[in-house]
Design a protein around this nucleic acid. Sequence first.
DNA 1: TCCTATGTTGTATG
DNA 2: ACATACAACATAGG
Length: 267
Amino acid sequence: MPELAEVEYFRKRWDPGLGQRIREVLVHPRAKVFRGTDAEALVRHLTGATLRSSAAAAKQMVFRASGDAWLGIHLGMTGELTVQPAGHVPGRHDHLVLAQDGRSLVFSDHRMFGRIQFATGREPPDWWASLAPAILSDAFTVEAVAAFLARRARTPIKAVLLMQERFPGIGNWMADEILWRAALHPRRPAGSLTPVEIKRLHRECRWVCSHALATIGQTFADPPKSWLFPHRWEDGGKCPRTGTLLVREEIGGRTTCWSPGRQTLSP
DNA sequence: TCCTATGTTGTATG
DNA sequence: ACATACAACATAGG
C-alpha cells in the first residue's frame, strides 16, 4: 500500500504509544524484515525504553526512544502499523510488537518486502540521514529535476519517477497520477521532455505530494473522483478529464495506467 | 491453476 | 564508472 502519504498515515497510528514505556518487545527474529538488522540488540535496547517521537520522510519512518535508540521501519509493499489491545499475541505476520501498559504497537507484513532497522547513538543513522531531499522542500528544484532527467535520458519517464534518489516517496500510483496531471505519456524517454514539460512535471510532483498528504496522509480517505487514483484499477475505467477509456500496460516492470486522450507520445 | 499486487535490490549487459 | 533492464524476494487474494 504505502507511498509517501500512506507512510505518513501509518506513522501517526502509533501516536498513542509516544511518551509511554515499552514493557516488552516481541519479535520474529528470523523473519526477512530483519535482514541486516541485529534483532537481539533491538530487543535489548527497546525493552524498558520510552518511545519519544516519530517522523516520516519518503517511504521511511523513524521512531526514537530513550537511550538514543533509532527504530526504522519501511513498509515495503504490504507492511502496516496498528495499535492492538495490551497483551496482543503476535500472529504469523506480526514481526515486531512493542508491548506497553495500555496497548500493543504492532508492525505486520505478510509479504516481507518491508524492513526493520535499528541503531543507537546521538547521530541519526545512515538510513535516515541520507534520504534524498523531500519533494516539498526547497531543495527539490526544477533544475535538479532537469539534470536528473538528462542523465536518465533513455529511460521512460514513468520509471524515472520511481527512482527514490530524486523522487523520494513516489510510488506506482503517485507516479501515474503525476504524469496524468502533467499530461505526459509514461513511455516518453526522460530526455525528450521540453523545458516547459519539465516545469509541469515538477509542479505536479509537488501538487500530488501535498494533496495526497492532506487527504490520505490525514485520514486514509481516498482522493476525490477528480483524481486518476479512484479510476486506475477498475476495468473500463475512464479518464475523469477526457472521458476516454484508460489504458493499462507494463512500463519499467510496473503496471502503468494513463489516459490516451490526455497523454500522448509526442510533446 | 494462473495472475496480480501502492517496493527495493542484486546482477547482467551495454 | 555509469546507465539500463529485469529477475528475485514471499505471500495472499481474485
